[in-house]
Write a protein that binds this DNA or RNA. Structure first.
Lengths: 212, 212
DNA sequence: ATAATTTTCTTATACAAGTTAGATTTTTTG
DNA sequence: CAAAAAATCTAACTTGTATAAGAAAATTAT
């Protein structure tokens, strides 16, 4: 009955007891879902990971589906917030490469800081079709940001113009997801993606590397 | 008790009745796993999709795990065969771009011709750690081919040299998987990937587009 | 066609998962 | 500290799932 206020990034042991265990349950859900995908995780394992008995979960969430959905929403809205913050840091009229690189770093940073949530949400486990209207909307917003970035990059000839922007966006996000979860340092991962995506304007050599 | 002979690409209604239903079961498994991931699919739904009663599956496969594993093996070995055939068609000393593009086309073609198997195997559902030693070996072989391709491309300066080849390979495969399942025509998909990957030697304009 | 064999169906069992309701404990509040 | 509220536990019930064994049907060979 209580309105949600818990975000995925917080760390301190703040809020009432209820809010704290609610957060613990969401964290546990993210961890389990990241490991076993949504159908593969039982509410038993979630409860165990949250140091609760199975039935107790139902005081905080009315069903497994609602719980998973809440976890998705928390992860997605945190990722989206980070992305928007990063984009707000560089002016809208900045070079598309700068903005695109900022987005790459934001995504990689999100993976680093909220690994389980990110894997659950952006990674293999996410059920593109099920997963509640709210989560779907957040995810649509997230990829919409990338569509804009790619589109702008194409208009400025940073990226090839021929391919459909949405196809190119999916390819970039696919690469990002595949590599974002790697063990390497965020910088290494970022450099690899930058090298893959490239910049048609700077022929051969790299030049535009001025990010926030 | 019968040695396996059914591959994933065959289409004709050939072989004894047992082999035909065995194939039907594998197809159904691929379809269900592609839709719901491995833990999400019940042996009931597989049986239904194969027009059988649940118990009858156990005449052909001794357990759900073995069945899923057999499906993985069929899909992987078919994909690998296609990739190797495509690579055999262009000489080992061909330009790395030509070989890389051939591999891209082979992968996209595999997705097109055996959609469910490919989604199950290369897509989100595949359990990287579980899934039987045999399937794991096949998958290792598959990505190994790509490592070689990327490595060669880096040596010839088609791709940037700095990024770790395995990181670059993962990024490319990630893009490939994300976009390979798209509804667009294989050519469109291929062109988008080619544009993303690019060729550092042909600055700006495209030139090397002579594939098998 | 008849027998042998292969394939499929039926039925039963055991277990795990999601869920609920009520008792019990903990936390908060006056 | 006592009463109210919030949080957790216990112990069931329900359903679905994987699997096994034997009967029934369909295929194949003779």
């Amino acid at each position: 009955m209580r309105k949600d206020r818990a975000k995925a990034g917080d760390e301190a042991a703040t809020g009432s007891k209820g809010e704290r265990t609610r957060k613990r349950i969401l964290d546990a859900t993210a961890a389990e879902v990241a490991r076993c995908s949504v159908e593969g995780t039982s509410i038993n394992s979630i409860a165990a990971a949250a140091r609760l008995k199975t039935g107790s979960l139902y005081f905080h969430f009315e069903s497994k589906d609602k719980l998973v959905e809440a976890m998705f929403e928390a992860g997605l809205s945190a990722s989206l917030d980070r992305l928007d913050a990063a984009l707000a840091d560089c002016p809208a009229d900045a070079d598309p490469a700068v903005r695109l690189y900022a987005a790459l770093r934001a995504h990689i940073g999100a993976v680093r800081d909220m690994r389980d949530y990110t894997i659950a949400v952006l990674g293999p486990s996410f059920p593109k079709d099920a997963a509640g209207a709210n989560a779907r909307r957040l995810r649509r917003d997230y990829v919409a940001r990338w569509t804009e970035l790619v589109d702008a990059a194409q208009r400025e000839d940073m990226l090839a113009r021929e391919p459909d922007p949405e196809l190119l966006r999916d390819a970039i996000l696919g690469a990002l997801n595949a590599v974002g979860l790697s063990e390497r340092s965020p910088e290494t991962v970022f450099e690899a993606l930058k090298a893959l995506i490239g910049d048609r304007r700077s022929n051969g050599l790299d030049a535009a590397d001025n990010a926030a």
